[in-house]
Design a protein around this nucleic acid. Structure first.
Lengths: 297, 297
DNA sequence: AACAAGGTTTCAAATAATGAAACCAGTTGC
DNA sequence: GCAACTGGTTTCATTATTTGAAACCTTGTT
């Protein structure tokens, strides 16, 4: 049984983004459970069981059991008062590991620190995750303009600077699948509306090695971005410097291009030679020492 | 089959902490899969299959299939080059939701901002998660927030200011179970070594409403902390202001006690009345639109 | 060339997931 | 006050998935 599904949800600020549930491929029970988890996360707010059920292809009893299991496991948190479910804190604990090990953030840290210091603007570090842009780190500009971006947040690939920078260097078979997964929602008049339109720009980006966001995702927000490429030219991530049209303009940002590329190259270099500190290794484990006690807090 | 297990791992800075895998309770296949995920996260570095197998109670084929499934699902990331597994980026995406919805961080934000501004010291916001302290936010006085570099870290409950503040207000049956899960590792000469020793201090903390870390976890690090209690006096979390013995002392920190308590009360009040912005709600879902494509990046 | 270690696949038996339907509150309407 | 809801929880025979010992590859080593 396949449980393919696509979510269109609005985030807190009202923007629409496509969210693919990484599901099925017949990954059995575990896959289905994780799909439920994804579904719950997609609402962006605590949800009641009934609402969940309405949106789910699963039968009542099945969904119920999954939600129970996930709650037991700390992957979901149940609010007795309001009778709602929300993603649980265990995820935060796990994400800390993921962030430290699977993302470019630890490697890139000194480089983006330097960049934000030099430019005084907001710097983003993003990676591609299931056809979407996942922001893994960020340095705020001096005056913190609250923006659609924080570590862990996702955004569309087809209309952001970092997204386009990475797409431009994606090898062909993959690019097609990824483009097919974009929502092509028209955020602003400047947003690309189709794969064809975007492909034209991607060629140019590939040539120059720099991409821009010309208010394609959000009016008043522009950015310049450079891809982080490994030695086989595969995009590992992308860096960007973002500004508002009030305070800067595309020409000014374009000046930062070379500096961005330099930082991107440095990160790529460091990433290849990066080895985890062996000191962090010592790991012992003893079994069955204590019973797990369900937290019913 | 129960898969109880306990990990003792050192984090990057060399501190030892007990890490309980929230497992079993016969949560079926999903529970076992999540245990594997926890195990992998516990190493703090990418691991090879063989090492995983050595530490796992599961038979080769079973563990193998779990790792495959989790990788397919983006919960793990496989490094083809080094043949290692690490927690995957999907967790970062999910954790963003969890952090925003299940933690006190969004509610507490303005309050801890104010606190760190006023004191100029490091402020922590923590919650209790499976007998451990989970830091959910932090203000570094200097640097801006870096989400998962700090949030998501876990620490021991029995020898930190925030941990003791929360334990002091835990109702009895629970307190006993939680105390039984502490490692009682002697980090410094001042570390409590047993439940009895700690219980004495907890009574005092309950009376004063303020707890201190007197270099119990790390030499040179002291802090003052206040619990965040809901209307039924249940600890939802704790706040702390941390300093080094070089720059400050316990008496100076004690002065901040009332201010901390005030902030804690404010957070508790806000948390009770907190309702998720309804605007974030609109959620639609359409099924079977696009196939999920495995990312073999 | 033979060996070893790490990783992957097979397949019948054992186990866990499934979901229709019954059940059990609270709530609302009359 | 009763009856019909609505939303949530449990049951249980059926069905499908997981399980794991063992065989099997594949790659690197002596």
């Amino acid at each position: 049984m396949l449980v393919n599904s696509r979510f269109d949800a609005t985030d807190g600020t009202g923007r629409i983004f496509a969210h693919m549930t990484a599901v099925d491929k017949s990954d059995g029970t575990v896959g289905k459970a994780l799909a439920v988890l994804d579904q719950i996360a997609s609402y962006g707010r605590p949800v009641r069981f009934a609402e969940l059920l309405g949106d789910s292809p699963l039968p009542k009893a099945t969904l119920y059991r999954f939600v129970q299991t996930l709650t037991n496991q700390g992957m979901l948190q149940y609010d007795v008062e309001r009778q709602t479910y929300a993603p649980g804190l265990r995820l935060v604990r796990l994400a800390h590991s993921a962030w430290a090990q699977a993302s470019l953030a630890p490697v890139a840290r000194p480089h983006i620190d330097a960049l934000s210091h030099e430019t005084g603007e907001t710097v983003h570090l993003a990676q591609l995750d299931h056809a979407q842009v996942l922001y893994v780190d960020k340095r705020n500009a001096r005056d913190p303009v609250e923006m659609f971006s924080q570590a862990g947040k996702v955004g569309p690939a087809y209309c952001t600077g970092v997204g386009k920078a990475m797409l431009a260097h994606l090898p062909e078979p993959e690019l097609t699948t990824v483009l097919a997964q974009q929502s092509w929602h028209q955020f602003t008049p400047a947003t690309h509306g189709s794969p064809e339109s975007l492909r034209a720009e991607l060629a140019e980006i590939r040539a120059t090695g720099i991409s821009f966001d010309r208010e394609e995702h959000e009016i008043g927000i522009i950015c310049v971005s450079a891809p982080i490429l490994n030695s086989q030219n595969r995009p590992l991530g992308a860096l960007s410097v973002t500004g508002t049209t009030r305070r800067t303009n595309l020409d000014a940002l374009a000046q930062l291009g070379p500096r961005l590329q330099q930082a991107a190259r440095a990160i790529a270099r460091d990433a290849e030679s990066w080895v985890f500190p062996q000191s962090a290794a010592p790991h012992t484990m003893s079994q069955g020492e204590r019973p797990y006690v369900r937290s019913d807090a």
